[in-house]
């Protein structure tokens, strides 16, 4: 089923959709654009996170580490190099560090891998703090890049498009198949001739590089960065939650978790500013109990009712 070439009828509408999204900042207020910035950033993060962690079952809490690496690259270099070069470097550093991490954590699995990645993020943060204190005698870094909300939006839109399209394409390729087999049973994967190490490490590095990219782009309007902001573990948890909420089995799932959660948070923090935490917490419990399988589960149940998809299913079978 995964290898089966599908019809390409949707490519034209998808391209039109992206073009429409790219033009949106012309119509919307800066506030709406910045709301969409969050949506796109988290959609990219959750999608790339789930492509590795969701399929292989190696749940990573190192998202914040890679986002932070991107942020710090911008903080260190934005005064000296053109923006495009800085972003490319952020992407590369994320990739290289993730390669190292991936290679050294191969022996770990399950919860041990989860907490290892969490500890790793904290270790990186502590080392950056220590370095800054001893080298620069301040923790504050300033980013004065003249990047408008629109520019950041367009950069993130490009990132999100590439990530989602890439993940969609890869998950239908041999790589995606290999990842799924690893997720099912790593031993079986190895026996069936998959170079599990290579696949895991490369995919981990590639998705981590995306996270660094997102961190770098977002930081363009932070003005001020310090290690506690850059390496904020909360981001790791948020991305994990969004992906779980969306459903991690399919390329669209995580993005479908990110969009409603960002919008829901925005709604709640405006409606119940003093009870946001309580309201959000209750929403989580309600979602788990009444929306099993996350947003993708909901989509599945709805699409079962839609005549068109039923038609398509019949055609496919």
């Amino acid at each position: 089923m995964a290898e089966k070439p599908a019809s390409r009828w949707w490519i034209a509408p998808a391209a039109a959709g992206v073009a429409f999204l790219a033009g949106l900042p012309l119509l919307l207020s800066a506030y709406t654009v910045s709301l969409l910035i969050s949506v796109l950033a988290y959609a990219s993060l959750a999608t790339s996170w789930a492509f590795f962690s969701g399929t292989t079952r190696y749940i990573s809490l190192a998202t914040a580490a890679f986002v932070g690496i991107g942020t710090y690259t911008v903080a260190l270099l934005s005064d000296h190099l053109p923006l495009a070069v800085v972003l490319a470097i952020a992407h590369m550093i994320g990739f290289v560090i993730a390669l190292g991490v991936g290679l050294s954590t191969l022996r770990l699995s399950g919860i041990y891998f989860v907490i290892f990645t969490f500890g790793l993020t904290e270790l990186i943060k502590q080392l950056v703090i220590w370095f800054e204190i001893n080298q620069t005698k301040t923790l504050a870094r300033y980013i004065f890049v003249n990047a408008s909300g629109t520019l950041i939006y367009e950069l993130l839109l490009a990132t999100a498009t590439i990530v989602i399209a890439g993940v969609w394409w890869l998950s239908r390729s041999r790589v995606g198949y290999a990842l799924r087999v690893i997720g099912e049973d790593e031993m079986v994967a190895r026996h069936s001739g998959i170079d599990t190490t290579r696949v895991k490490v490369l995919v981990f590095a590639a998705t981590s590089a995306v996270m660094s990219m997102v961190g770098a782009v977002l930081s363009l309007r932070y003005t001020y960065v310090d290690p506690n902001i850059a390496f904020n573990s909360l981001v790791s948890f948020q991305v994990l939650i969004m992906a779980l909420l969306g459903g991690i089995g399919r390329p669209w799932g995580p993005a479908l978790g990110a969009v409603p959660l960002v919008l829901l948070s925005e709604l709640l923090s405006g409606t119940f500013p003093h009870h946001f935490g309580i309201a959000l917490g209750i929403c989580f419990v309600v979602i788990v109990f009444f929306l099993p399988g996350g947003v993708m589960g909901l989509v599945d149940r709805w699409s079962a009712w839609l005549p068109r998809s039923a038609l398509r299913r019949r055609k496919e079978s």
């Binding site: 939650i241 946001f276 309580i278 959000l280 917490g281 989580f284 419990v285």
Partner: peptide, 25 residues
């Protein structure tokens, strides 16, 4: 087991917010 883990993480994460929010209020 995976579905159970995902569900418990979501629910207890929600509880964390609720308790913290209640204490703050």
């Amino acid at each position: 087991q995976e579905i159970l883990e995902a569900d418990t993480i979501l629910v207890t994460f929600g509880l964390l917010f609720v308790f913290q929010g209640l204490a703050l209020v």
